[in-house]
């Protein structure tokens, strides 16, 4: 196997390991979880109970980690396909790996205050995504035909780096939530945290829908299943957005259901993409071509990461009303 292929395999391996460690951390805490504090009603954002804040923060860390893992594996494949033509193409692999690592750390961490190192990495990841969007815009614009459908389909994907920014943003918000464990009110930039996370997640879901829609359109929706990620997540995003703006402290069954379905859809989508690779000429025996040119297997779990963040936000909204 050539060295370059090894790099790709190794990066995918790291991503999988990261996902597994998040899962393990989650299982460990679930096993030892404690009694849940009663809901406190208040007009201002209610101070989170210590345990509730840590739990919500860890859920957000976990969501940021799933998103980072998806970004890491998808970027590794796409930038390997692009022959790492520019050295900057390694950057998102580094920051996504770091984001994944600190998310695993945060998922396992029960301490009641933000972690400086994690904060730093999350900010870095968010910035990488912004800079990456700039690079991708430049790539599209410099191709023959400029901002054309052809280049939106086949040049550097414009929406992809934003997923890394989202991972960073969710992680950053996780740290803010954790900070409230000391009894502060869950606010960020003057806004109730639950609403902010819900808003960011809702917007992130819509962006991811746009990306999936574009690529599934490129694939001519050759399977009816390809409509699911442009049909279901917008419902979840809309309901969550509505929740972000609406009354808090209410049980929102439909929001929760749509987000849970979106969580599952992300993993099922990956399975469909595995099948999609098999559907290419030569199937999995021809993996060196088909993993790169077939549907990207690590992409759909981005929805899972975002939906998990949405569920965490919903928990904050429901349990800690601010109105």
């Amino acid at each position: 196997m050539p060295d370059t292929d090894r790099t790709a395999v190794a990066t995918s391996g790291i991503a999988l390991l990261g996902l597994a460690s998040i899962g393990a951390a989650h299982v460990a805490t679930w096993a030892g979880r404690r009694w849940r504090p009663p809901v406190v009603q208040a007009r201002l954002p209610a101070p989170l109970g210590r345990a509730a804040a840590i739990r919500a923060a860890r859920r957000l860390n976990r969501a940021a980690g799933v998103l980072a893992a998806s970004v890491l594996a998808a970027t590794a494949g796409a930038h390997y396909r692009g022959s790492f033509q520019h050295r900057a193409m390694f950057t998102p692999l580094v920051t996504a790996s770091l984001s994944l690592a600190v998310s695993a750390h945060g998922t396992a961490d029960r301490r009641p205050s933000a972690h400086r190192g994690r904060d730093g990495v999350y900010v870095l990841a968010a910035l990488t995504g912004v800079v990456g969007t700039g690079f991708h815009l430049y790539n599209v614009a410099s191709r023959q035909g400029g901002l054309s459908w052809q280049n939106l389909f086949y040049a550097a994907p414009l929406g992809a780096p934003a997923a890394l920014s989202l991972s960073g943003a969710l992680g950053f918000l996780a740290e803010r939530v954790r900070d409230t464990a000391a009894g502060e009110q869950p606010m960020v930039a003057g806004l109730p945290l639950g609403r902010v996370v819900a808003g960011v997640t809702s917007a992130g879901l819509m962006g991811t829908v746009a990306e999936a829609g574009l690529l599934h359109f490129r694939g001519a929706f050759n399977s009816p299943a390809m409509y699911v990620p442009i049909a279901l997540p917008p419902v979840a995003a809309a309901l969550l957005g509505n929740a972000a703006l609406g009354a808090s402290g209410r049980r929102r069954r439909w929001v929760r259901l749509s987000l849970r379905l979106t969580t599952i859809m992300g993993f099922v989508g990956a399975a469909f993409h595995v099948r999609g690779v098999a559907r290419q000429m030569g199937g999995w025996r021809n993996w060196r071509q088909n993993v790169l040119n077939g549907p990207p297997i690590p992409a759909p779990p981005s929805f899972t990461g975002l939906a998990m963040a949405g569920l965490a936000a919903l928990g904050l909204l429901e349990d800690h009303p601010d109105d």
Partner: peptide, 14 residues
């Protein structure tokens, strides 16, 4: 069955 992936100028598959 294996064709090519990298189609642009100055790119080659392994």
């Amino acid at each position: 069955p294996r064709g090519y992936v990298r189609m642009q100028l100055d790119r080659r598959d392994p």
